[in-house]
Design a protein around this nucleic acid. Structure first.
Lengths: 162, 162
DNA sequence: CCTGGTTAGTTACATGTGCAACTAATGTCA
DNA sequence: TGACATTAGTTGCACATGTAACTAACCAGG
């Protein structure tokens, strides 16, 4: 069968293996950024994601937050509870559907959001500094493709269909 | 200088925020690949990383494994213990330095490694299928830069210096 | 209505993980 | 040689997190 190589014949080098590399860079990203708001504001990644979504969209149900920020509903639940305890968010019942509640930032929460945003953007800026804009665009385009495929390959949380 | 925007003025969109995106794609990668060897071989990500490194390098100390695969030493310790219990690796004392031990795959471990490698490569293949080779190269080059910077920004595990 | 199915959100439980402290061995420097 | 620092690896502990089970509310079809 001509020059076509059988997969089994190729070797695996973990440090070049894409899933591994993506996992490592994602880990570094979390950890590095986590320090920024962890040490200064005492909040963790799940809490940060909730704040970020509320800062952007104003008012959301826990379900929406989970969907938008790719977090398990229990993680969202706990993060919202924690933020509520600290007075950074409020929960208000939806009269039209009393199963769900709208979560929103309090003034204190908005202040924290306003403080974190520039730090986060500066962090990102520093991280990609010096990379050519064209290369970065390509990078992000491929990243989007990989993320979308990954979502399906992973079967985001549940959704065992197909 | 004229058009330059101050960071504080820009808005943050989590779904376009690079650290977040990298974390999400890394999460999908782990989860998807984890299914491959998790459901068929009953091993987790740390165990897989240990096996992968041993399959590639033959014999390593736990310290080396941790360094090569970016895992905390306690995670390595537990993964090796688990693999030892299952008869997939052996530990042999280093006479020249009795603090450390060489870990290596047993024949059973090698068989599992030989089974997983083609699955992992096929998974990677399917994941990047259809992406232009040139774009993929650019992607990987940028990824390498981001990983290296991330390592420093995160301060891999300890190394609180500077 | 009311019965069965679905959905938003919480909680009990088990597991995974990092940090700190520890043991045991090696290295260093006087 | 001996005292102190360092390193490989393990373990106690606290905490984070996913799964499954649960509650409460909504929805569909009779």
């Amino acid at each position: 069968m001509s020059t076509k190589q059988k997969p089994a014949d190729r070797a695996l080098h973990l440090e070049q293996f894409l899933p591994y590399r993506l996992n490592v860079v994602g880990f570094f990203a979390s950890r590095a950024l986590g320090r920024v708001y962890g040490t200064r504001f005492g909040i963790g990644i799940p809490e940060w994601r909730v704040i970020a979504q509320l800062g952007e969209f104003g008012q959301l149900t826990s379900r929406d937050i989970g969907e938008l920020s790719q977090m398990h509903k229990t993680k969202v639940s706990r993060a919202v509870t924690e933020l509520d305890k600290r007075g950074l968010v409020t929960r208000s019942e939806n009269r039209a559907d009393r199963r769900e509640a709208f979560v929103a930032l309090t003034p204190a929460g908005q202040r924290i959001y306003a403080q974190i945003v520039p730090l986060a953007l500066a962090f990102e800026e520093r991280w990609v500094e010096g990379i050519a804009a064209e290369e970065l665009r390509t990078f992000e385009r491929v990243l989007a493709v990989l993320t979308e495929r990954g979502r399906h390959l992973a079967g985001a949380y549940h959704a065992e269909e197909a």
